[in-house]
C-alpha cells in the first residue's frame, strides 16, 4: 500500500479517563484507504525526549468524513503531549503503515484486547461487520475505569469484559473469562492485541484448541516503514520487521 506523509487537523480530543484520549484527525483532502491492524507514525514536537515519531494504531476510520481516530494511552512524554493536542492543532502523520489483520475463513470470531491494545480491534470489528461477520469482543483492564470505549465496541457485536479487581465483568485476566475457559470453544479465529503476556496466553489457548490466532505486536520502532531494522520480531524465518512484515503475525509464526 502506498505510504503518505500529511498534516492532519485535530478536530476533536475526547478525554476518556485519566490516561486515555481519543483524537479525531481530519485529512486535508481525500483520505486514502487504510486497513484494520495498520498504524500511523505521529510526529510529536521534536522536544528533547520526543525526537522520534510514535507508532499508534488506527482506531477507527470514517471514509466519508475523511477522518481517522487514534486511541492514545498516556504513558510517557510523547503520548502525554498527544493527549494535550487541541482542536485546530496540526498532527503530522506517516501512514498507513504495516500489514493488516486478515479476514477469517469461518464466521465465529473473537477479538481479545487489553490496555491500548484494544485500539486496532474497533476498526477490525467494523471491517468484520462490513463483511457480514458478527464479532465478539473480550476486553480486559485493571479496573472498571480502565475499560474504555465500551459503547463503540458493543454497537458492533457481543462484548465481554474482565477486570483484575472484579469491578466490571469477570474478575481476573481475559484468559479467566468463561468464553476462554470452555473445552470446546465456539470460536474459529482469534485476533488479539495488548500486553505481550496477555497475547502469549491467548495464543497458547488458541493453539491448544486448534484456533487460528493473529496477534498484533508493539515493538519499539525508530522509523515505522522498514528503513532501520530496529523493530524485529523473532519468527520461524528469522528476524522480521514488525513495522512492515507486521505488526500482525500469525501466532504460530512467532518464536514465543
Amino acid at each position: 500500500m502506498k505510504k503518505y506523509i500529511d498534516d492532519f487537523k485535530v478536530i476533536k480530543n475526547e478525554r476518556l479517563n485519566y490516561e486515555y484520549v481519543i483524537l479525531t484527525l481530519q485529512h486535508p483532502g481525500q483520505m486514502p484507504e487504510m486497513m484494520p491492524g495498520q498504524f500511523v507514525e505521529v510526529r510529536v514536537d521534536n522536544g528533547p525526549n520526543t525526537f522520534l515519531r510514535r507508532p499508534i494504531s488506527i482506531h477507527d476510520v470514517d471514509m466519508e468524513a475523511n477522518t481517522m481516530k487514534l486511541l492514545v494511552q498516556e504513558i510517557g512524554d510523547g503520548t502525554r503531549l498527544m493527549g494535550q493536542l487541541k482542536e485546530g492543532d496540526n498532527c503530522n502523520l506517516v501512514y498507513p503503515l504495516g500489514n493488516s489483520f486478515s479476514l477469517p475463513e469461518k464466521k465465529r470470531v473473537l477479538l481479545v484486547g487489553g490496555g491500548c491494545g484494544i485500539a486496532p480491534l474497533l476498526y477490525m470489528g467494523r471491517h468484520l461487520v462490513a463483511n457480514g461477520i458478527e464479532p465478539q469482543f473480550l476486553l480486559g483492564a485493571r479496573t472498571q475505569e480502565g475499560l474504555i470505549a465500551m459503547d463503540a465496541f458493543s454497537e458492533l457485536g457481543q462484548l465481554y469484559t474482565t477486570t483484575e479487581d472484579g469491578s466490571h465483568g469477570t474478575k481476573g485476566f481475559v484468559i479467566h473469562h468463561p468464553v476462554m475457559r470452555t473445552q470446546s470453544p465456539e470460536i474459529d479465529q482469534i485476533y488479539t492485541c495488548g500486553p505481550e503476556a496477555m497475547m502469549k496466553v491467548v495464543a497458547k489457548y488458541a493453539k491448544n484448541h486448534g484456533i487460528k490466532c493473529e496477534v498484533s505486536l508493539e515493538n519499539h520502532m525508530a522509523c515505522g516503514f522498514g528503513a532501520c531494522l530496529c523493530c524485529v520480531a523473532d519468527t520461524l524465518d528469522g528476524h522480521k520487521c514488525t513495522c512492515t512484515d507486521g505488526p500482525v503475525f500469525d501466532s504460530t509464526y512467532l518464536k514465543w
Binding site: H220, C228, C230
Partner: peptide, 23 residues
Amino acid sequence: REGNAYPRMAETPQGMLNAVGLQ
C-alpha cells in the same frame, strides 16, 4: 547475518541508540 536480538533501539535526548548489528 541475522543481526542482534531485539531490543535494538533506545530513544535518547535528541538522538537514538541502535544495535542492529548489520542484519
